[in-house]
Design a protein around this nucleic acid. Structure first.
Ligand SMILES: [Mn+2]
Ligand SMILES: [Mn+2]
Ligand SMILES: [Zn+2]
Ligand SMILES: [Zn+2]
Lengths: 139, 139
DNA sequence: ATATAAAAGATATTAATTATTCATTGATAA
DNA sequence: TTATCAATGAATAATTAATATCTTTTATAT
């Protein structure tokens, strides 16, 4: 898996540096949809000299070659996800937690919508908003 | 219609200023989902002294009392819509145009998703991405 | 008409992100 | 193993959307 990423980077003429692999692995091994800042902090022990600019550059790079996706929940900063398949997300309005949603997604055939809008449709994003299990206790 | 808005503002203890009514009317009379900046420019002839801060403050206010909704298409800035009902949008990846989508929306019962996620769900947003009729010509 | 609290306008500030520069380091191919 | 070219890190600056601050103006109730 990590091997795959390294070779995929090389195939694109991009060097497989430890920083890049570490950033990708963080995303691959979490369900928390972290922000650039969160990833940066999470790597500070392993890479004390890691630059925040490197994190941003790497996230942009990985997005560009389709290894991760950028998701925008509407507040503050971007979140990142190693699951590049279209899938819905749910956002806690209080603590800003972002989770995956199972059990529902938009039909993958865009034909009807394309006919109605006359757009050529490539992708979609579906977001739900509400209160997570923790935050809904305090209403 | 404009009368309604003015009285609704007053009912909430909010002053019905010409600037606020003008901003609301722009949104009520367009299908283009303008940004704060676009609204600001659109009012510059009618209100040469209008401050951009006033536009932002008013848009926040109108959103808060439910007269308009804020939509986030994932790029650059927020867009605003006087149609406060949940409805999907489609975004042109090239020219950033935002249109309404007819013929499809998420089922309004959140029961299944609530059961799966254990969230209390309040709302959703559905965005499609692609190329508008104009931009898809140049592929 | 007047008083008053709210809002407007002007300006400054915040904060995420991107960009620039440049010396040092290191991944990769030969 | 070595040379090369890309990437890192550090420091700093630029962007840009959005907010905050403060003084002046004004909508509204009396
Ligand atoms: Mn996800
Ligand atoms: Mn709309
Ligand atoms: Zn929460
Ligand atoms: Zn377009």
């Amino acid at each position: 898996m990590e091997e795959n990423v390294a070779s995929l980077l090389k195939k694109n003429g991009i060097k497989a540096t430890p920083q890049r692999l570490a950033i990708y692995n963080i995303l691959k091994n979490t369900k928390s949809h972290p922000s650039a800042e969160t990833i940066y902090k999470g790597l500070s022990k392993q890479f004390p000299t890691m630059s925040l600019a490197t994190v941003y550059k790497t996230l942009g790079l990985l997005s560009r070659i389709g290894l991760i996706q950028e998701i925008n929940v509407g507040e503050d900063s971007f979140r990142y996800d190693a699951n590049t398949a279209p899938h819905p997300h749910i956002v806690c309005l209080k603590c800003k937690r972002v989770d995956d949603v199972g059990g529902y997604d938009v039909p993958q055939s865009y034909d009807t919508i394309a006919k109605n809008t006359h757009y050529k449709i490539l992708s979609h994003q579906l977001y739900f908003y509400g209160y997570c299990p923790e935050c809904k206790k305090g209403e």
